[in-house]
Every structure is written in C-alpha cells, then in structure tokens.
C-alpha cells in the first residue's frame, strides 16, 4: 500500500500568511536594540531575529515588546 499520501508534509504557512492576523505591528528601534536575543527566545512564532521581523508571519502578539529590556520595540496600529 502506498502510504505516502497519508503523510503530511512540513511547510511554512500551514495556516497561511498569519501576518494578516495582526492588529498591531511591532517596530524595532535599531538605535535602542542591542541584539541581545531575548525577543528571539520568547517570540512564539520564531519570526524576530536581530531586530528583523518577518511581517508575513508575525501575528502581532506583542510578547517581543514586553520582554525587551531596552524598550526598543513599539506596537503600532496597522
């Protein structure tokens, strides 16, 4: 029996471009960001690295803004 069709394939965007869910957009102030990596650790999506955000998938939860010790992230209404 060919089991191949029964096996789901791993991919980005299994639920689509979730960036469209955002109400607020996180914006990083590059002057303040020390690239410490705390936001990267806590972002549930894994879409913020060294102050760069993948807005196609960032859901706008605001966790990065909360955990940033430098207060380098602002949430801006979309």
């Amino acid at each position: 029996m060919d089991l191949e069709p029964l096996i789901s394939k791993a991919k980005m965007a299994s639920a689509g471009k979730t960036g469209g869910w955002r109400n607020y957009r996180p914006v990083v102030d590059e002057e303040l960001c020390t690239t410490c990596g705390v936001c990267t650790e806590y972002c549930p999506e894994g879409v913020i690295v060294n102050g760069k955000i993948d807005y196609d998938f960032c859901k706008g939860c605001g966790i990065c803004k909360e955990v940033c010790k430098q207060e380098a992230i602002r949430m801006v209404l979309e």
Partner: peptide, 20 residues
C-alpha cells in the same frame, strides 16, 4: 521544530514550547 504561519493563537504558550 515548528514553522511560522501555523495556526496557534497570538501569544500561544504551546507554540513557544514547541519551538524548544
């Protein structure tokens, strides 16, 4: 261990744990 663009809610703890 989990790709972005998944169906977790905003701020989901499970998604965060799955990354680990």
């Amino acid at each position: 261990m989990i790709y972005p663009g998944n169906a977790s809610c905003q701020g989901c703890p499970i998604s965060l744990a799955m990354r680990c």
